[in-house]
Design a protein around this nucleic acid. Structure first.
Length: 504
RNA sequence: GACCCCAUAGUUCAGUGGUCCAGAACUUCGGAUUUUCAGUCCGACAACAUCGGUUCGAAUCCGAUUGGGGUUACCA
């Protein structure tokens, strides 16, 4: 018995999908997984869930590595450092999933489905019109075995779905919430293997967690309703299910799930704004948790030492930067001596890379070195000091300014690369589609981004500032001209979609 | 809509049946210190969502209601 306890090592994981910016929510979940594992003397694993071929990118993956490391969250095993349970990238494990899903098919726990997306849409529409809850109707199950074989042999595209009980209730245990019950009637016959041969989250997750010997799955609350599917898969495979623990979701100030449309969610934003990683981690650690003595300021090691997952508070915490600002101030004042302060500032603002970008922008424009500071202040600041009056200059009225800022913010979400050419192309196209002269359209953007009416070229400035700061400043500008009401927003979105824009 | 989760000040937490007319931090507002600002110190405002039950006793346990959130995809 004793031996069994000793060999039962705790293994936790964070499993981000490399689609888009590295999210503070990822860091949040990583932090709690890491604290739990370290506190228990276990291991913390990073696994990349890149099964969505359309949206995953290597660049995004690298950014996740970089930003988590920047925060000081180090993993014991992962795609970049290896480990005994690799590979740690799901796209490199497709054979494993195929094998396992075939096993389920053979055992009669999963089945082939040839329905197209359109067919399923139609099915759901019909169900809804009848006032039913949209749900897969089991049409794939009705197919005869020889027909299935024939259609597979004919190369018809298909997916593999899991069978789900029609009646009864699924019971499972959450470490923080206790027993949870979900009727099986609420659970859909989930796709396990997509038509492209890649697994869905549910399959990959269960297979990997088992094979990687994950002992505790600490993840966001959004997964609670998927737990029955996972439990069922463990049962089908005859595997022991890890302990489940669902953390509360980080929220926007309006209490909805933290989203980049309403808030800066990229770790890179906080880095670009000049927060210390220690402070961000400290702040994240205070979301739903506190030190036993209620001390506000603590470092990662202290958090690990005192961590108790049972003390996680389940109310969804609002990620509100006021306290983060205060904490960051304390970290800067109390934890950096003058030398360290200098080093951090140089790293943040005056590193070679950044200087190389800034110098060509200003050298031709200064008459004296003393012109430099006022000229570049906006490149080394957070949000510019503007109000609604700032947008009254120029030919555009406030309604147009609002529209330009809103459209630009949407347009810039789709930009693949962040350089002057791409930015020019994206915004020039937008101006044409809006039937505005580029120069006129750029003015509100210029004001929102630089806070001034004259500054070094906008696209170059945007490159120096980086996407995170630029997006935040556009949102800031939008707030200052007056964010569109929900109704207006809908109308704008509809109009925006009719514009003839390419994805760059 | 259905299902699931959650509920202490504006925000983040403490509180796990009596020591709670609820404790701290941020924010805001006063005051002190400082040439100014920042900081620091002192102080003030401010909450157990509602209703019912269990109990000698409930912020704490149970139920209902209300409110918020999530899920409802060949996205994770």
């Amino acid at each position: 018995m004793l031996l069994w306890i000793i060999t039962m090592t705790v293994r936790t994981r964070v499993a981000p999908s490399p689609t888009g910016d590295p999210h503070v929510g990822t860091a949040y979940i990583a932090l709690f997984n890491l604290c739990f594992a370290r506190q228990q003397g276990g291991s913390f694993i990073l696994r990349v869930e890149d099964t969505d071929q359309k949206r995953s990118s290597k660049d995004s993956e690298q950014q996740i590595f970089d930003s988590l490391r920047w925060l000081g969250l180090e993993w014991d095993e992962g795609p970049d450092i290896g480990g005994e349970y690799g590979p740690y990238r799901q796209s490199e494990r497709t054979q494993i999933y195929q094998r396992h899903v075939q096993e389920l098919v053979r055992a009669g726990h999963a089945f082939h489905c040839f329905a197209t997306a359109q067919e399923l849409d139609e099915m759901r529409r019909e169900q809804m019109s009848r006032g039913e809850t949209p749900k897969y109707d089991g049409r794939g199950l009705a197919l005869a075995a020889d027909e299935v074989e024939r259609r597979i042999a004919a190369g018809e595209p298909h997916v593999i779905r899991m069978k789900v009980p029609e009646e009864g209730v699924c019971h499972f245990e959450d470490m923080l919430r206790g027993p949870i019950e979900i009727p099986w009637s609420q659970v859909d016959m989930q796709v396990l293997l997509k038509a492209d041969g890649m697994p869905t989250y549910h399959l990959a997750n269960v297979v990997d967690d088992h094979l990687m010997e994950i002992s505790h799955v600490i993840r966001g609350e959004e997964w609670i309703n998927s737990a029955p599917k996972h439990q069922l898969l463990y049962k089908y495979f005859d595997w022991e299910m890890p302990q489940l623990c669902h953390m509360p979701l980080l929220r926007n100030p309006d209490k909805s799930k933290l989203s980049k449309r309403k808030n800066p969610t990229s770790i890179n934003f906080y880095r670009a704004m000049g927060y210390m990683p220690e402070a961000l981690i400290n702040y994240l650690g205070r979301m739903g948790w506190s030190m036993p003595d209620e001390e506000e300021k603590f470092e990662l090691d202290e958090m690990i030492a005192h961590f108790d997952i049972g003390n996680v508070h389940l109310g969804g915490p609002v990620f509100d930067t006021e306290k983060l600002d205060w904490l960051n101030g304390r970290w800067i004042r109390e934890n950096l001596d003058e030398h360290a302060f200098g080093e951090r500032v140089v790293e943040w603002a005056f590193n070679q890379d950044k200087l190389r970008q800034i110098i060509p922008l200003v050298q031709g424009r200064v008459e004296k070195f003393s012109d430099l500071a006022p000229m570049t202040a906006y490149l080394l600041s957070g949000m510019p000091d503007i109000d609604e009056c700032s947008f009254e200059q120029g030919k555009l009225d406030q309604d147009i300014s609002r529209k330009v800022l809103q459209y630009a913010s949407w347009r810039l979400e789709d930009v693949s690369e962040w350089n002057t050419d791409v930015l020019y192309q994206a915004l020039n196209e937008l101006a044409k589609a809006m039937e505005l002269k580029l120069k006129d359209m750029l003015l509100p953007l210029f004001i929102a981004i630089t806070g001034k009416t004259s500054a070094p070229p906008l696209f170059d400035s945007m490159v120096v500032l980086g996407p995170y700061l630029v997006r935040a400043r556009i949102r800031n500008g939008l707030e200052k001209v007056g964010t569109p009401s929900k109704k207006q927003l809908k109308k704008l979105e509809k109009e925006y979609r009719t514009l003839d824009l390419t994805v760059s």
